[in-house]
Computed example of a mutant assay.
Amino acid sequence: MRINLLKHGVAAPLLAGALVATIALWFRYGLLEAGLLPRDCALADASGAACVFKEALVQSFLHQRLGWVSLATGVLAFALSCSRLAWVGWLTGVAGLVLYSFDPAAVGGLLALLVLVGTDEQGRKCESESDHQPGDRLRVGGLG
């Protein structure tokens, strides 16, 4: 039995997540921990652009900000069934897992991934359908 990732809507989130994880790993290990960015931006020989980039990168995961953004958007996406918010929650969750925001990023990313994989064939975009019933996707007939 083969699993068709395209049919179940898993391929796009997995590919996008792998790309974001690769970029975040490069930022973490290729730039920050490898020492390619200046350690002390107060020195005269430090490049201004490199210092601004380093400060923005460090501020993004200081106090687990990426993880909290992922958690907030993941919860909202799950509550509203909004695929746009789910993409934000998923991608910031993947980046947060790599960039020191493990706990909130994991929960937010998984909630967002549930919304991305669970959207119907039309791909809901934060729209509420008035004639949509909760059990419609279960393909269960009425009781009476």
Rank of each mutant, 00 (worst) to 15 (best):
M1T: 13
I3V: 14
N4G: 06
L5V: 05
K7E: 15
H8W: 13
H8F: 13
L14C: 10
G17T: 01
L19I: 12
L19E: 07
V20A: 04
Y29L: 11
L32R: 01
L32K: 00
L32V: 01
L36F: 15
L36Y: 15
L37E: 08
D40C: 11
C41N: 02
L43R: 14
A46G: 03
G48C: 03
A49S: 11
A50Y: 07
E55T: 14
L57S: 09
V58W: 00
Q59M: 12
Q59E: 15
L62V: 08
Q64E: 14
R65K: 08
R65H: 03
L66P: 02
G67I: 08
G67F: 05
W68H: 11
S70T: 03
A72H: 02
T73W: 08
T73G: 02
F78D: 00
F78N: 06
A79C: 07
A79F: 01
A79M: 10
W87D: 06
V88L: 15
V88Q: 04
L91C: 07
G93L: 05
V94M: 12
V94T: 10
V98R: 06
L99F: 09
F102Q: 11
G108S: 04
L113P: 03
V117E: 11
D120V: 01
E127P: 01
S130V: 02
S130Y: 06
P134L: 10
G135V: 10
R137A: 14
G142N: 01
G144Q: 10
